[in-house]
């Protein structure tokens, strides 16, 4: 494999899988540390380019690496952050659930199509509730900040959030069923 050819394949792989791999890592270790884990996986791939076959298995190699690194990271974090036994148990269950060999779960993680449906459900919310919900959910603003910016009371913000969640819950429940049944029901 020529150098240029390798680079094309390498960055092509990155473009193709970055979002899904990052989403996967985020499920395991959370937002703050997922980016580093995915980057490290690609650095490892670069450093071992002569030893790794860039064939059909490369995708499972990437997911496996993210998984292994995430587990190691969580082990370390559980010590540093002094996890309670409940937290440890929860993460153990989560790790087992998101095992890269669980093809049903993995197939779902790669499917980003549902995002559009979620966003359109949000956009269909009544005017003021939509505004409040977007500020809270998409821009991660605190209820207090939203109240200040919109010039409404904290109570009103909470009421709008409650209303939005209630509507979304009904609208999205079919999506959730879709997720849960993804394989079993077809």
């Amino acid at each position: 494999m020529s150098v240029n050819n390798f680079e094309t394949i390498y960055y092509g792989l990155f473009k193709q899988h970055y979002s899904a791999l990052l989403f996967y890592a985020t499920r395991l270790v959370g937002e703050d540390d997922a980016e580093d884990i995915v980057q490290d996986v690609f650095v490892e791939l670069w450093n071992n380019k002569s030893k790794i076959d860039f064939d059909n298995h490369i995708k499972s190699f990437l997911y496996k690496s993210v998984y292994t690194r995430s587990i190691n990271f969580l082990k370390h974090k559980s010590v540093v952050d002094n996890y309670t036994s409940e937290e440890k148990e929860f993460f153990a269950q989560k790790i087992a659930y998101y095992n890269y060999e669980n093809s049903e779960v993995m197939a779902r993680l790669e499917n980003m199509e549902l995002k559009k449906e979620i966003l359109s459900a949000i956009n269909d919310l009544p005017d003021q509730s939509r505004k409040v919900f977007k500020m809270s959910y998409l821009y991660e603003m605190k209820n207090k900040e939203i109240a200040d910016i919109l010039g409404i009371s904290l109570r009103t913000v909470e009421a709008h959030m409650y209303k939005a969640l209630k509507i979304l819950r009904i609208k999205l429940s079919h999506l959730l069923l879709l997720l849960i049944c993804f394989f079993r029901c077809v």
Binding site: Y11, S19, Q93, Y97, M112, L119, I180
Partner: peptide, 28 residues
């Protein structure tokens, strides 16, 4: 288990930004 983690996935998917081209390019 599936129910809880599916909800969590939906919750994060709705605000997922890293599938946008400029985010991917920045990471690259």
């Amino acid at each position: 288990k599936k129910y809880l983690f599916s909800i969590e996935e939906l919750y994060h998917l709705g605000k997922w930004k890293y599938d946008e081209e400029d985010k991917i390019n920045a990471a690259m």
